[in-house]
């Protein structure tokens, strides 16, 4: 089964390098697209894109166990088998419980209830140009963001129109489960990095991860003139590993001003708009190279 669209995921490893800023810029410059914010822990893309919400769905992250004090005979079996140290004094700490259900099944008195709770919302929206946009919000203290990422992507892609050419995914930081869930099905990953010791450190770890999934990636160096020597190191590392640097953006106070005003950088500054349009052309070429890959 072929699909007509290309799915581009924007990642960084290190947080705060500019993932969302670039996702917002791409979203504004590309037509025939849908846009998904997969940073469900701390979703920000809606702040730039200012979407109109058309549907809200409930999300349930998983089940939690709860001891029914009336039936509990205080035998302590549940506490002894719980691997998550979630049970103390015949009470289950809801934050520690991972919902494995072991205690529920093993309790000789059927005194442990197992229920799913609603743990967040998923929003289906439209943008100014009528494109679809999806983002989500977890309730405070809820875990399972990897599952919510999978859920939001499933929702976004299930009824995708044949006219869509691009799926733009704003990813989470790190290299853990939400990142793995974000890159499932990706055609290409854009890594936004910065020339700092931590930027390059985290970039390397992310590239190793992508390599295990055999996903092609390109790098954008944001704040490129902040540290020339580390910028050179990034170029060198990218070249050795056959990763194209598809663009650089200088450390720019206009950029910061746009951020403070909650504006889309491509709409607030013509020079930046041109720079990012150029990056997009390069990106498109790289993505097209992967077609017959």
């Amino acid at each position: 089964m072929g699909k007509d669209y290309k799915q581009i995921v924007i990642l960084s490893g290190k947080g705060g390098t500019g993932k969302t800023t670039f996702s917002g810029a791409f979203a504004s410059l590309i037509n025939k697209k849908i846009v998904i914010d997969c940073d469900v822990d701390a979703a920000n893309l809606h702040l730039i894109l200012k979407p109109k919400i058309i549907n809200r769905y409930d999300f349930s992250g998983g089940k939690k166990a709860l001891i029914d004090n009336f039936n509990c005979q205080q035998c302590g079996l549940c506490e002894s088998i719980c691997r998550f140290d979630a049970i103390h004094n015949y009470e289950i700490d809801q934050l520690s419980c991972e919902g494995c259900g072991f205690c529920v099944r093993i309790c000789p008195y059927n005194a442990i209830k197992f229920g799913s709770s609603q743990s967040g919302h998923l929003f289906e929206c439209v943008l100014e140009d009528e494109s679809k946009f999806y983002y989500a919000k977890l309730f405070p203290g809820e875990g399972n963001s990897g599952k919510l990422v999978s859920e939001i992507k499933r929702k976004a892609l299930e009824n995708i129109s044949g006219e869509i050419k691009w799926v733009i995914v704003d990813g989470p930081p790190g290299i853990g489960c939400p990142v793995n869930a974000s890159i499932a099905g990706a055609d290409y990953v854009v890594i936004v990095t910065e020339p700092t010791v931590s930027g390059i450190h985290d970039l390397k770890r992310l590239l190793q991860l992508l390599n295990t999934f055999k996903i092609k990636a390109g790098v954008i160096i944001n704040k490129n003139d902040l540290n020339k020597s580390i910028s050179d190191q990034i170029y060198e590392y990218a070249e050795i590993h056959n990763i194209p640097v598809i663009g650089t953006i200088p450390y720019n106070t206009d950029f910061v001003k746009a951020l403070i005003n909650g504006a889309n950088i491509v709409e607030s500054n013509n020079k930046v708009r041109e720079e990012i349009s150029d990056i997009l052309i390069g990106l498109e070429q790289e993505v097209n190279k992967t077609i017959n890959y």
């Binding site: 947080g15 705060g16 969302t20 469900v40 822990d41 701390a42 920000n44 702040l47 934050l95 977890l138 405070p140 203290g141 809820e142 875990g143 399972n144 963001s145 989470p172 930081p173 790190g174 853990g176 939400p178 951020l259 403070i260 909650g262």
Partner: peptide
């Protein structure tokens, strides 16, 4: 770690105090 889900929770729970570091942007 950044974020607000399982890994952040695991890190900050049982703290006596938490410093939240933010920046002057809508994000």
């Amino acid at each position: 770690p950044p974020g607000t889900s399982c890994s952040m929770l695991e890190a900050v729970r049982e703290s006596d105090f938490c410093i939240l570091v933010t920046e002057s942007t809508p994000f």
